[in-house]
Amino acid sequence: YGDLVAAMHLLITTKRSAPADDLTSFLLAAREEGEESLNEHELVSTLLLMIGGGSQTTINLLDHTVRELLARPDQLGILRADPARWDDAVEESLRVHCPVMHLPMRWAKEDIDLGEGVVIRAGDAILICYGAHGRDPGVHRDPETFDIDREDKDHIAFGLGAHFCPGSHLARLEARIALPALFDRFPRLALAVGPEDVPPGQTFIGNDISSLPVFLRHK
């Protein structure tokens, strides 16, 4: 982590002396010219957030989708026969395998009345689960099953309202390009372990897969 923070400080120093058409330069300009400036810590934190939010989350989306499709060759065959349907696979993966499962813990500063007799008391811990809606049996039939033909693929994997992920379009585009490219490049790709044996990551915040063992040219 220390090396990454040092790299961000070096990036800031470099872009301050030689700005270009990139997001780091934009953040620096907003810091120096805008009414609400960012201090050095905020700049570094924002850059780290962009790296984490723009990489690991998309990796999670790709990993889960690949695992599900390799475990369901019939659905993979449908996608290969009709490439226009890759969007269905991406949205279904976002529904059942939300890339960020939980929001880090928060605590209520005061009583919060949610209605219907539900009150969060001051001091209570609050853990928001982004993945809950997509797996809610009251919303989705057989919610834990990956099915590209499912009509309702509603999810909140990218958040909602003012907190909707600004990178959602890029994430969908990356998945829409990367997934068919992978299966076109390795048409005999196969899981080297059972889908239930793919090891999960060691965090309850991100919905990670720690490794995805595959055979690239399975016979």
Results as ranks from 00 to 15, higher is better:
P195I: 01
L179H: 13
M105C: 09
A122K: 14
Q75L: 07
R141Y: 02
E35R: 14
V214H: 09
E196T: 05
I126K: 10
E174A: 13
R121M: 04
P166S: 11
V90R: 00
T14N: 14
V139Q: 15
L49W: 03
K109S: 09
A18F: 04
A190E: 15
H41R: 11
E91Q: 06
T13K: 13
D113S: 09
H9A: 11
E36N: 01
T203F: 07
V139F: 07
L47M: 14
L69W: 10
D142F: 02
T24W: 07
M8Q: 13
F183I: 02
D136K: 00
D88N: 11
A181Q: 12
D3R: 05
N207T: 02
L11G: 13
C165M: 09
C165S: 11
A7D: 02
T145A: 15
F186D: 08
L216F: 10
A84L: 12
E68K: 09
R106E: 04
D142P: 00
L179F: 13
E35M: 03
D124W: 09
P213Q: 10
T14E: 15
A18D: 15
S25N: 10
A6E: 13
P73E: 14
L79M: 06
E196F: 00
A122R: 15
D184L: 07
F158K: 03
V193C: 15
G34M: 09
R185C: 11
A192C: 09
L170I: 11
V96K: 11
M101V: 03
L94Y: 08
A108E: 04
D142Q: 02
K219L: 06
D124S: 15
M101R: 14
L94T: 02
S210E: 12
P166Q: 07
D184S: 12
A108S: 10
I148P: 04
G2L: 04
E144I: 00
V214I: 07
L179Y: 11
A125V: 01
H102N: 14
P195D: 09
H133E: 11
V119M: 13
R188W: 02
A108L: 08
D124V: 06
G117I: 00
E110I: 01
R72I: 00
N39T: 03
R121D: 00
L49N: 15
R67Q: 10
G194Y: 00
T145P: 00
R95G: 08
G117S: 08
A7V: 05
A190S: 11
V5Y: 02
S25W: 06
P137I: 04
I126S: 14
D82I: 03
H9S: 07
D142W: 07
E33W: 04
H140S: 09
V193A: 09
F183R: 06
A125M: 12
W86I: 01
V66S: 10
I120H: 04
P73M: 12
T24Q: 14
A84T: 15
L4R: 04
E151A: 10
H140D: 04
L191S: 09
I120R: 01
K109D: 12
G117N: 07
S55L: 15
S168K: 04
R16K: 13
V214P: 02
E196Y: 01
E92T: 01
E36Q: 09
K153E: 10
S168V: 00
D208L: 11
H140R: 06
A71F: 13
R72W: 03
R150S: 07
D82W: 01
D113W: 01
R172A: 13
T145S: 14
L216D: 03
V193S: 10
G34N: 03
H133V: 12
L48E: 11
L76C: 07
